[in-house]
């Protein structure tokens, strides 16, 4: 229960931080997919169910606190696919599995958005792909260091608050 409430607050804070702070920065820093990155870490390190719910609500919530150029349905689809990948493909709790999971989810997220946003009049495909490529670099980079930070937080939480993370 405590895990779930803590995850919900992290969900709200990272969404607000991404749309209000990161989106203010100049290129390429405004492309950092912080909310997506944290969602992948939650899905892989904490609980795949929490991660799937994270992505299911992300699209809607990001649109409310700021702007979300991606379609909400793509977030739901990516969450479901990520849940499947966590059990069947990237079940290992190594940093490579985390990066593989994040890379696969973001790749699928990009493809789905490319298909859906292609029907929009304002959509610029080359700009979109360029930004997604840069975001993928930040995602992999962030997941690597996120893995280290997540392990540190797990040990700290276990020692201080006796919160058990599911193996």
């Amino acid at each position: 229960m405590l895990n779930n409430i803590f995850t919900a607050f992290i969900f709200i804070l990272t969404a607000m931080f991404e749309v209000s702070f990161l989106h203010t920065l100049p290129f390429p820093y405004f492309i950092i997919p912080l909310h997506f990155l944290i969602g992948v870490i939650v899905m892989h390190r904490a609980d795949p169910v929490l991660g799937a719910v994270w992505f299911a609500i992300s699209g809607f919530f990001l649109s409310w606190v700021g702007f979300n150029e991606a379609n909400s349905l793509t977030y739901i689809a990516v969450g479901a696919i990520g849940y499947f990948l966590t059990f069947k493909v990237f079940a290992n709790r190594s940093v490579y599995a985390l990066i593989g999971l994040g890379f696969s989810m973001y790749f699928i997220f990009t493809i789905l958005n490319l298909i859906i946003l292609s029907f929009s009049d304002n959509f610029n495909r080359s700009d979109f792909l360029h930004q997604q490529f840069v975001a993928l670099f930040f995602l992999v980079f962030g997941l690597y260091f996120g893995f280290i930070i997540a392990r540190y937080i797990e040990h700290l939480a276990t020692d201080m608050f006796f919160i058990r993370i599911k193996p």
Binding site: N3, N4, I5, T7, A8, F11, V49, V53
Partner: peptide
């Protein structure tokens, strides 16, 4: 069952916030 509890908690907190 394992979906209902975390989904309802996170969804509830987010909806409460909104």
């Amino acid at each position: 069952k394992k979906f209902i509890r975390p989904a309802s908690v996170i969804f509830g907190v987010v909806m409460l916030f909104l």
